[in-house]
Nucleic acid binder design. Structure first.
Length: 876
RNA sequence: GGGCGCAUAGCUCAGCUGGUUAGAGCACUUCGUUUACACCGAAGGGGUCCAGGGUUCGAAUCCUUGUGCGCCCACCA
């Protein structure tokens, strides 16, 4: 079969149909690939996008990279699984929906109640999830949709429950009163990374505190103080350490202990701090070290508690004013610093000020020694995995970031006081507590109202999607889990290495005692053209769908793959996509040119074996194709996607299109070679630009390109390879120099000139290629090639190595003189430099011999050229 | 405060373990509608590789200091 191609490639016409063809073929599903039993498996689990909003360009980059890897591996004969899914993103999603409801109906979640709110969330979710899946398909992602998962679907729900239960039974999950970040507005704990810090001005109160004067920004917490602390080395306060002091406060005299702790900085403030163990993280740690009691004085609404006398019931900010007022009357305020700048901690959702509170919460213990992990803790195993390179990072520097973060990890608070998410599978009845997969049968049990941190379920993503726990029987993996876990690569943005990557590693280690992936590849962020983060509120975002409509998915993919190196952010603009669109069109037209040859018949078109090369150019291009295949394969194997694309781009445009196709118009009968190259080229480009390559392939093949075989690395025999490259370079140089000379001398392109070439030993080679030299945009009317001859006056003289070229009939003496003078100057400089270098005994004695001889050769070449130029100049 | 990264052509960036005259795309200048492509072709101009110091026969590349950006973590009483 052979169908004519249109003059310009219009992506929007064919992409949907092409994707449909792929999907219908069933080849996205590894079970349908016709592979030998011993084919290796290759798995990537797609980082599930949040269903809070449509996809942005960051997601597109992720899809482009992962699809590139997967398509490449599929072509190389791996049993590839790329598994799709979405993330319920508990807090984020509930927040979006809450805001929406408040805007539309003026109601809060408490007005609606749990069930009604959840109903709203689910209907919201259905809509955005649909949009996300459409966007993903439009990018060309070859995901196995038959295995689509959601972090909160039924299967994942039962997996999460079991995981919780197992961890609870091992003691890896516990309930306890700990300091948490509490948002009084959302009524929920926040993870450390959900807290944002904002610099702002506040008042700093210097208060009289027994024998001390100390600074505080929160005088109301004085009611909860149980100690003061100083640095152990601070000579000013040595005598107080260990004493118990009576302190005068707004509610009367109370006792504090003086402790010495290194957390206190001597040079900050007065070097004395008050310790409020129940309402400050630092103070809490000090209290733990010194065994100090805590006193809770602020409740979950951010109000002063009953134990605060007349201040009870006041919001903390109000209480602060009142207490400062009273302290001033009592003469307890030394002075007040007005413009004190500090960081206030805020809720990342509602911007409320965070209250650190002791609260009853569920935690994952990262330090507990766990029997099934050989009496190591989750933290130890997770660090070990990176240190011993069970998991490697690209780029490598993120290994350090991961390990540093892991080492400082505190117990992970996994309970959240929101409604959307996995409800904690624990039931209470009076003092009894039950953890299980379902509610106890008897009446009177009440389930814990809290839900789990969203990262708990997404931490299980690599194995919950592969059928854990059903596929894990008596400690043995079966089915998909056995085939596809551990996965090969986790590809994601570097910003969630701590939030997500680390959690997946811990969860997988606990559940399966194996790492979830062997390789972590981290991409950077896609920024706008000014280097700012794209965001909806700033309105600087670029909508991927719009770009796909305009330029095609292939162009969008290429723009995100090229010039994008691992771990580095990339500034992005529409122009970049445009240039890639141009390339896609170029590839289209190259194919169109090759396929439109009238002599192409069915036999040639289906030809798959290496054609015999007949000329130097044939040899050169096949040789070059082979090198390209080799180095593209190597770079893809090493995740150097951008470099691989650059190499391919260079071959396709600068070698094939600019040279070989032009030559093929001169040296005829290259159909077999051209079609051979085209076949290989389409296969290699396919992982980058799947749509256009599949479309072209489909115009002369009945099979699908996506499951073709990657070319063998050795396509031609390697004899004379180097000779070929050198010889063809000479031809190229001759041509370029002639064009150059024409351009410099302003010889009109249409004007035909005569040329005489003295080949000095390369006569035969040049004669073999004289048609090319004559016709390849050099505008030569007659060409004479001889081994040597007399110098021709009245002609533009060019030298290429030993070869002398004279262009007759278009001499402009002034121009030519100018050119030669410039060349002379340049050569003089080079000769000087080179002589200096070679006169340096240290260089000659100590540099490798190869380098020295190379440099010597260079010098003699320069000198020879200089002689020639001088001679010509004289003659002019 | 601790850690990491970046600084190369007007712009966006490549340049791995040091070795021909430092590259690409875009932009710019000149020329060109040759039957694959104007989403094109030919030729060209443009760089003290942030600064200082060091290692080396040789440094954009390695070490060190400084400057200017960016990010991550901790959080200041």
């Amino acid at each position: 079969m052979k169908n004519e191609l249109d003059k310009i490639y219009i992506p929007s016409l064919g992409e949907l149909g092409t994707y449909e063809k792929w999907e219908k073929s069933g080849y996205f599903n590894p079970d349908n690939l016709n592979l030998p039993i011993d084919a290796q498996n290759y798995t990537i689990i797609l980082p599930p996008p949040n269903i809070t909003a449509k996809l942005h360009l960051g997601h597109s980059a992720m899809l482009a990279i992962e699809d590139l890897i997967i398509r490449y591996k599929r072509l190389r004969g791996f049993r590839t699984l790329w598994l799709p899914g979405t993330d319920h993103a508990a807090i984020a999603t509930q927040n979006v929906v809450e805001k929406k409801i408040f805007k539309e109906q003026g109601k809060t979640r408490h007005d609606l109640g749990r069930d009604a709110l959840l109903k709203e969330v689910w209907s919201f979710l259905e809509k955005t999830q649909g949009e996300i899946l459409i966007q993903t398909r439009r990018m060309g992602a070859s995901l196995d949709w038959s295995r689509l998962a959601f972090t909160l679907d039924n299967q994942r729900q039962s997996a999460v429950k079991l995981m919780f239960k197992e961890m609870y039974e091992e003691g890896a999950i516990y309930r306890g009163e700990r300091m948490v970040n509490w948002c009084p507005r959302c009524h929920s704990t926040l993870a450390d990374d959900e807290v944002e810090y904002k610099e702002e001005k506040a008042k700093l109160y210097w208060i009289k505190y027994g024998p001390f004067v100390l600074a505080t920004s929160r005088p109301e917490t004085k009611l909860g103080d149980t100690a003061v602390a100083v640095h152990p080395d601070d000579i000013r306060y040595q005598k107080y350490i260990g004493q118990e002091l009576d302190i005068n406060g707004v509610l009367g005299v109370f006792k504090v202990k003086v402790v010495a702790d290194k957390a206190v900085e001597m040079n900050f403030g007065s070097g004395v701090i008050k310790v409020t163990p129940s309402h400050s993280f630092v103070d809490n740690e000090i209290a733990e070290r010194h065994n100090l009691p805590g006193k809770k004085i602020i409740n979950e609404d951010g109000e002063m508690m009953a134990n605060c006398g007349k201040y009870a019931g006041l919001k903390t900010a109000v209480a602060r004013e009142a207490i400062v007022h009273d302290m001033q009357e009592m003469g307890l305020i030394d002075h007040i610093e007005e413009d004190y700048i500090h960081n206030s901690s805020r809720c990342y959702r509602c911007d409320s000020v965070i209250e650190p509170l002791p609260s009853e919460q569920w935690f994952i213990s990262v330090d507990k020694k766990i029997k099934r992990l050989g009496n190591k803790s989750l933290k130890e195993r997770a660090i070990e995995a990176a240190q011993q390179n069970e998991i490697t990072f690209t780029p490598e520097r993120f290994k350090k970031r991961y390990i540093d973060w892991m080492e400082n990890l505190h117990d992970w608070c996994i309970s959240r006081q929101i409604w959307f998410g996995h409800q904690i599978p624990v039931w209470y009845k009076d003092a009894e507590i039950y953890c299980g997969l379902e509610a106890p049968k008897e009446a009177g049990w009440k389930q814990d109202e809290d839900t789990l941190d969203t990262w708990f379920s997404s931490g299980m993503w690599t194995f919950s999607t592969l059928g854990w726990p059903d596929n894990y029987v008596d400690g043995k993996k079966i089915g998909d889990l056995a085939k596809f876990h551990p996965t090969q690569v986790l590809e994601t943005g570097y910003e969630i290495i701590t939030l997500w990557v680390s959690r997946m590693i811990m969860m997988s280690i606990f559940a399966l005692n194996e790492v979830p992936f062997s390789q972590v590849y981290l991409h950077g962020m896609v920024l706008d053209k000014d280097g700012k983060k794209m965001s909806k509120s700033k309105g600087n975002g670029i909508d991927p769908l719009e770009m796909i409509e305009k330029f095609g998915a292939d162009a969008v993919r290429l723009s995100l793959l090229m010039g994008f190196t691992p771990g580095n952010d990339s500034k992005f603009s529409e122009e970049k996509i445009e240039t890639k669109r141009n390339f896609v069109n170029k590839l289209w037209n190259i194919s169109r040119f090759i396929l439109s040859s009238s002599s192409l018949d069915e036999k040639t078109i289906s030809l798959n074996s290496t054609p015999v090369s007949r000329t130097l150019a044939d040899n050169w291009i096949l040789n070059s194709l082979q090198k390209t295949i080799e180095s593209v394969s190597k770079n893809l194997d090493e995740f150097n996607f951008s470099i691989a694309a650059d190499i391919l781009d260079d071959f396709t445009w600068n070698q094939l299109a600019d040279w070989y196709l032009e030559i093929s118009k001169i040296e005829k009968n290259k159909d077999d070679i051209l079609i051979f190259i085209l076949r290989k080229l389409l296969i290699i480009w396919h992982p980058f630009t799947p749509f256009v390559t599949e479309k072209i392939w489909g115009s002369f093949n009945d099979s699908l390109l996506m499951v073709e075989k990657w070319p063998e690395l050795q396509i031609i025999n390697s004899d004379f390879q180097d000779k070929t490259a050198v010889e063809f370079k000479i031809i190229q140089d001759i041509i370029v120099n002639i064009r150059n000379a024409r351009s410099f001398n302003k010889i009109e392109p249409a004007k035909k000139i005569q040329a005489v070439i003295y080949a000095h030993g390369l006569e035969k080679m040049l004669l073999d290629n004289q048609e090319i030299i004559k016709n390849l945009k050099t505008g030569i009317e007659s060409l004479e090639i001889r081994n040597e001859g007399e110098k021709i006056n009245d002609a533009i003289a060019i030298t290429v190595g030993n070869i002398e070229i004279f262009l007759l009939g278009a001499m402009d003496y002034e121009k030519e003189k100018e050119r030669l003078l410039k060349e002379k100057e340049n050569l003089n400089k080079l000769v000087n430099l080179q002589e200096q270098k070679l006169a340096n005994p240290e260089f000659v004695d100590r540099a490798p011999e190869k380098i020295v001889s190379l440099e010597k050769e260079k010098l003699s070449n320069y000198k020879r050229d200089l002689l020639k130029v001088n001679k010509t100049l004289q003659e002019l």
